[in-house]
Computed example of a mutant assay.
Amino acid sequence: MKTFKLIATTAMGIEALAAEEVRELGYTCEVENGKVIYQGDRLAIARSNLWLRTADRVKIVVGEFPATTFDELFEQTKAINWEEYLPEDAEFPVQGKSLKSKLFSVSDCQAIVKKAIAERLKQAYNKSSWLEETGALFKIEVALLKDKVLLTIDTTGPGLHKRGYRVGQGEAPLKETLAAALVKLTKWQPNRPFHDPFCGSGTIPIEAALIGQNIAPGFNRDFVSEAWPWMDEQIWEQARLEAEDLANYDQPLHIFGSDIDHNMIKISEQNAFEAGLGDLISFKQMQATDFSTKLDYGVVLTNPPYGERIGDKKIVEKLYRDIGKAYKRYDTWSYYILTSHPEFEKLYGKQATKKRKLFNGFIRTDLYQYWGPRPPRNQKNV
């Protein structure tokens, strides 16, 4: 069976988490900035798209070569066996990017790659006229870095963060892939309680529930490569049946989210219902400082306001002080708070056990980690 060189792209800072997921699928991989590189067959393409929680998309590497002139770019692109990937009627738009390369005009690079692929396909399919492009979509990217060309085909379509459950959202929703990465960084286990006191549209609690029951995050959506002639229906059926078998729908969960905005609670409930998790997550309208629990050894993971807008800073700083006081009462719990505020630890009143730099979109943030004690080994449920 044909194997492909695959790239799972990621946000900066969470490559190691995506690599861990690739290895859990059974593939050896290498990690570079913003990407995880591995080999896999057609089933690997389907499984990667269904299972990778923290990656942005999965791409097939079609060609890699150095090029400093447009002639080199054209000839080496044309030399690739594009007919092995693209059928005669393929729709193949070309996107591009260029960094620190002599061929810096992205639009020119795109046009040349497009022309080279078209010429190759016309030869391969014995066509004299222009290609119609009425068939399946193959999104091609030409990326130049330091005069090295990377040609890829996107197997995903809309990014992997598009799980298919978000029917509503707030002003600045957390990306589902980042939310999943945050849950994984807490090392939370499904037998422990979990709470997000600034839950917004419910993304963090929903991603925690998907992880807690081992539900493939891409289970309820489609992917662009499902329409490709050589990605047989049986491959996707096999991958989805495997995902169904691995899901642990009987795993009890104690996950709850809260927010001061009652409209966001309604949206959270709708999103959880859309994800098939409506009965598993409890949402409640309340202030973060009103957090109270009789449970031990839980995890609080949250993405509170950062105070970046003028006028919000003092309100947010008071909020950080107040939650610092409120959380002191529950010393068996672990707390994980994502914010861009440089004085967070001082305001919260405690130095973090550990900090991890992450990017929430284009905002540079830190995940402040306050580790509580480990639960007793004989404690099956808390």
Results as ranks from 00 to 15, higher is better:
residue 231 M to Q: 15
residue 222 D to R: 15
residue 185 L to R: 05
residue 182 L to H: 07
residue 206 I to D: 02
residue 223 F to I: 11
residue 227 A to V: 08
residue 219 F to D: 09
residue 211 I to D: 00
residue 218 G to C: 10
residue 207 E to M: 13
residue 193 P to S: 04
residue 204 I to S: 01
residue 170 G to K: 07
residue 177 T to S: 14
residue 239 A to S: 09
residue 206 I to N: 03
residue 228 W to L: 05
residue 211 I to V: 13
residue 207 E to A: 08
residue 204 I to E: 02
residue 196 D to R: 01
residue 201 S to V: 04
residue 182 L to R: 04
residue 239 A to C: 09
residue 166 R to Q: 10
residue 205 P to A: 04
residue 172 A to R: 10
residue 237 E to G: 05
residue 171 E to M: 06
residue 212 G to H: 01
residue 203 T to R: 10
residue 195 H to Y: 13
residue 212 G to F: 00
residue 182 L to Q: 03
residue 234 Q to M: 09
residue 234 Q to A: 15
residue 165 Y to A: 06
residue 203 T to H: 12
residue 179 A to Q: 02
residue 215 I to S: 08
residue 162 K to L: 13
residue 172 A to L: 12
residue 180 A to W: 03
residue 191 N to R: 02
residue 195 H to G: 03
residue 192 R to A: 01
residue 193 P to I: 06
residue 238 Q to I: 12
residue 171 E to R: 08
residue 226 E to K: 15
residue 217 P to K: 10
residue 200 G to T: 09
residue 217 P to L: 12
residue 209 A to I: 02
residue 175 K to A: 12
residue 179 A to K: 02
residue 220 N to S: 14
residue 232 D to C: 11
residue 202 G to K: 07
residue 224 V to R: 03
residue 186 T to C: 04
residue 206 I to Q: 04
residue 218 G to A: 13
residue 184 K to R: 11
residue 238 Q to P: 06
residue 187 K to E: 00
residue 232 D to T: 10
residue 194 F to P: 01
residue 202 G to S: 07
residue 234 Q to T: 14
residue 230 W to T: 14
residue 233 E to A: 13
residue 166 R to A: 05
residue 204 I to Q: 01
residue 179 A to L: 02
residue 191 N to D: 03
residue 194 F to C: 01
residue 195 H to F: 09
residue 239 A to H: 10
residue 196 D to E: 04
residue 168 G to S: 12
residue 215 I to K: 13
residue 208 A to K: 01
residue 166 R to F: 06
residue 175 K to W: 11
residue 205 P to C: 04
residue 197 P to N: 14
residue 238 Q to E: 15
residue 167 V to L: 10
residue 190 P to Q: 00
residue 185 L to E: 04
residue 223 F to K: 09
residue 170 G to I: 09
residue 224 V to S: 10
residue 192 R to D: 02
residue 167 V to W: 04
residue 195 H to N: 05
residue 188 W to H: 00
residue 238 Q to D: 13
residue 163 R to M: 06
residue 169 Q to H: 14
residue 176 E to N: 03
residue 166 R to V: 05
residue 176 E to C: 02
residue 212 G to A: 05
residue 223 F to C: 10
residue 203 T to E: 08
residue 173 P to G: 08
residue 197 P to A: 12
residue 216 A to P: 11
residue 193 P to L: 03
residue 201 S to P: 06
residue 206 I to L: 11
residue 218 G to N: 12
residue 204 I to W: 02
residue 185 L to I: 10
residue 194 F to T: 00
residue 225 S to M: 09
residue 216 A to T: 11
residue 186 T to H: 00
residue 218 G to V: 12
residue 221 R to K: 15
residue 183 V to T: 05
residue 178 L to N: 03
residue 229 P to H: 05
residue 176 E to F: 03
residue 171 E to K: 11
residue 213 Q to M: 14
residue 202 G to A: 07
residue 192 R to I: 00
